[in-house]
Amino acid sequence: MLEKRIIVCLDVRDGKTTKGVKFKGNIDIGDPVAMARQYYEQGTDELVFYDITASTEDRGIMIRVVEEVAQEIFIPFSVGGGIGSVQDMRRVILAGAEKVSVNSQAVKNPGIIEEGASLFGSQCIVLGMDVLADKDFPSGYRVVINGGRVPTELDALAWALEAQKLGAGEIVLNSIDTDGMRDGYELTITRLISEAVTIPVVASGGAGRPEHLAAVLTQGRADAALIASMVHFGDYSVPQIKQYLHKEGIPIRSDWGL
């Protein structure tokens, strides 16, 4: 039986892991490679690195982080942030990432999903989408871009279906309302999208306690749950979370041989 994945997200800026609340007020919390190794050893199922820098110089630093991670961490990981062309995709894939995540750039140029999927395969292309509750939209949620700062006219559900059609192999759905609040995932939109698409959906934004993961993986019908603050700040460890989910009867990888 396919197990539910626990994915740890590392936001990387200037070669350091950083964490903010609702995409703001970021503070540095450590070396991404060392943190990735630790999470790997603790049985994390997958990692996500978001490059939250903008300059070209810093992009080079990010590629070196990806290369180092690929050398010593033997679980899948994806890289997102600033991926604007298939050349960008190729760069992170060649550095050793399994998957690339496109977000704002895919809204501006949906063709990048199609092009990426035909070049590298759908399994490589992840659509990251940030959503805000908005009752004027059919699904009740609208898509926002540029790190949550710029609202679009896209309905969250419609965009998820469109991305699937274009060839995305997975969706990471992040709720801006709950991001960094550690008060639980946005279950409504997660369930709505997860039940409508046939590709895996990763829930993101709001994990604070193991119960939150249990809720989004059952009621929210997510295939995987993304976490950050709750483990970065030491409130919980990945094994602790997995133990809880296992006890709740959620299929989870509980023996990783380390």
């Binding site: 039986m1 396919l2 197990e3 199922d45 759908s122 399994q123 192999g169 997975e170 590709i199 895996p200």
Partner: peptide, 12 residues
């Protein structure tokens, strides 16, 4: 919708 494709993740 019950068994998503691609089959992505850890399986026994």
């Amino acid at each position: 919708r019950d068994f998503k494709v691609p089959h992505i993740g850890w399986n026994q």
